[in-house]
Design a binder for these strands. Structure first.
Length: 574
DNA sequence: GCCGTTTTCGGCCCGACTGTTTTCAGTCG
């Protein structure tokens, strides 16, 4: 069983309590608990088996109540408190909470007054005009419900970081053209480098916001204007992504940036800290509660300083312990894109890449890299023209030739060898042993049971010829879910065997931020690679670095920040 | 329900916008 099963139970419990109109703080406590459990890479079943309620209570946000419920679920397969709530409501009611502009109060109202118990029945009563007659509802609400229901049905969920970053760049450029001299800055989860983005937040510091607000709601990407006020506008793009633009006076830029960058959880924690110091924090300034006098507002550093903290990098602002680190002066020096000296996962036309080995090397050099590893696929991936032992050895000869021409730049010989169903490798290990860098990864038999997949993976991890496991969980952002795998067990095995794990930067972000952090904490060395199949793919390195930064990684914890000499030494090659 | 530089009780972040209202509730982030 995965931790997510338990996470989902507490989310559900929080939803029912909201509908029941229970105390908001209790609801928030359950939501916080769900989030804390989601952040936990250690298997909860294992943790509970070893330390029981006491061990679970050690986790931030988990107290006596939730710890006991977790144990109850592990022991009996259900949670009595949750079952009691389930009995009170029709199951479809939870879906209604996901309809935009429909919160617990409105859902409860339509259920009690009109017997609405599903998205379909909500649509029906709205079409019949019964909704407008309800107290607190009106004609406009009814129209919006019908629109929002369409959106709800169509919604693709969250957009991936790379897609969102591209859209944001074009929006910023367009707004800058419309209002020259005014700085437009993306905030929100994009600035924090989150792997998926629910909506885009932009911030502009100006005393004259009307023109830029107008430009924003008139962008060609905009399908619908949701709100258009003097300091805030919201729009829906043709791709059904919501974008918000907020305007603040220039003197408030720091407070506003801090506020709109979030995360919400981080901000709540910062504001709680402010209150303890007799300060209040909003998007305009930090003020003294006693007399309302301003303390800070112009820069983010000032805002954090006002609550006794150093500036915290946006990627760490998730309330996952960064405040405690900042307080202790122990924030990590986070890795930066310029720290990378090479890319150790690249393909060529020998398999499914778009460029020759020489062209890929030229592109890597053009980025300022000192080295790259050429790691084409192995023969099991027939559709890519995967290499067999003979072709691989021929490729090595070509690379050796190229290296004579390219020195001091160096192409490391390598392979991305398939991990077969039983955990063995797709190529003769005696041949693999001759390569500079051996990556192993899974491209088939995704549907194995969790235990079988974990055993398969660990066998590859423990194979002494394997240097790195690439995209360890197999997910592709927005396209493919990870396969069933005990990532905690994988990390432990990798730490024990000295095998490295990848943060794959190209549309995978795999490992993700939390797994990468857990791997680092276990003593595993990480490698950030783009899995480049073309020259432009190298550019996705920045997303891998963002993920590493969210994991709290420093330069020295990532292999491909080493110089060529250090790298070869580390790999035991010349 | 959780938590503690106000520590086992009594707090728990803050504001904009919309749509419904005659002063505010609900939702969102």
């Amino acid at each position: 069983m995965s931790n997510l099963t338990i996470v989902e139970l507490f989310r559900e419990l929080a939803d029912w309590l909201e509908l029941a109109g229970e105390d908001g703080f209790r609801i928030r406590a359950y939501q916080n608990a769900a989030r804390a459990l989601q952040d936990q890479s250690e298997d909860l079943g294992k943790l509970a088996a070893q330390g029981g309620v006491k061990a679970l209570k050690q986790l931030d946000g988990i107290g006596e109540g939730t710890a006991k419920k977790i144990v109850e679920f592990l022991d009996t397969g259900q949670i009595a408190a949750l079952e009691a709530q389930r009995a009170k409501f029709p199951p479809g009611l939870r879906d209604l909470l996901r309809v935009p502009e429909f919160g617990p109060k409105k859902v409860a109202a339509v259920w009690h007054e009109l017997g609405v118990d599903s998205v379909d029945s909500l649509e029906a009563v709205a079409k019949e005009g019964k909704l407008a007659a309800l107290k607190g509802f009106g004609k406009k609400t009814e129209e919006n419900v019908l629109k929002n229901l369409q959106l709800f049905r169509r919604s693709r969920g969250r957009t991936t970081l790379p897609e969102a970053a591209e859209l944001a760049a074009s929006v910023v450029a367009a707004l800058q053209r419309a209002a020259p001299g005014v700085t437009v800055q993306p905030a929100g989860s994009l600035r924090r480098g989150k792997e998926t983005i629910g909506d885009l937040d932009f911030l502009v510091a100006t005393d004259d916001a009307a023109p830029i607000m107008q430009a924003f709601v008139s962008l060609p990407e905009v399908k619908e204007v949701l709100a258009h006020g003097p300091t805030k506008s919201s729009v829906l793009t043709v791709g059904d992504l919501q974008m918000d633009l907020r305007a603040v006076p220039p003197a408030s830029l720091g407070a506003a940036l801090q506020y709109f960058t979030g995360s919400k959880e981080h901000n709540v924690a910062v504001r709680e800290r402010a209150v303890r110091r007799g300060l209040s924090l909003n998007e305009y300034a930090v003020t003294r509660i006693a007399d309302g006098s301003p303390v800070a507002s112009a820069t983010e550093a000032e805002v954090y300083a006002a609550v006794g903290l150093p500036w915290i990098p946006p990627e760490l602002r998730e309330n996952r312990g960064e405040l405690a680190l900042a307080d202790a002066g122990e924030l990590p020096q986070l890795i930066e894109v310029d720290d990378l000296r090479g890319d150790l996962h690249c393909h060529s036309t020998w398999t499914d890449g778009k460029l020759s080995i020489a062209e890929m090397a030229a592109a890597a050099r053009a980025r300022g890299y000192d080295y790259m590893a050429l790691t084409d696929h192995s023969k099991a991936l027939a559709m890519t023209g995967g290499l067999d032992e003979q072709r691989l050895l021929t490729q090595v000869e070509e690379i050796t030739e190229l290296n004579r021409l390219l020195a001091p730049f160096r192409i490391l010989t390598g392979i991305e060898v398939d991990i077969l169903r039983d955990g063995s490798l797709d190529l003769d290990e005696a041949v693999l042993d001759q390569l500079d860098f051996v990556i192993a990864s899974i491209h088939s038999n995704f549907k194995l049971a969790r235990s079988e997949m974990t055993t398969r993976m660990i066998r590859a991890v423990e194979n002494p010829v394997v240097d790195l496991i690439a995209h360890p969980t197999g997910r592709v952002l927005g396209q493919r879910e990870p396969y069933e795998l005990d990532v905690g067990a994988l990390i432990a095995a990798a730490a024990h065997a000295g095998t490295m794990l990848e943060i794959n930067a190209n549309h995978r972000l795999d490992l993700n931020d939390l797994h990468a952090r857990a791997a680092r904490d276990a003593g595993v060395t990480l490698v950030i690679n783009t899995d480049a199949h073309s020259a432009k793919d190298f550019a996705s390195m920045k997303f891998g670095v963002l993920t590493a930064r969210r994991a709290g990684l420093s330069k020295h914890e990532v292999l491909n920040t080493l110089s060529l000499t250090e790298l070869l030494d580390r790999l035991g090659r010349e």
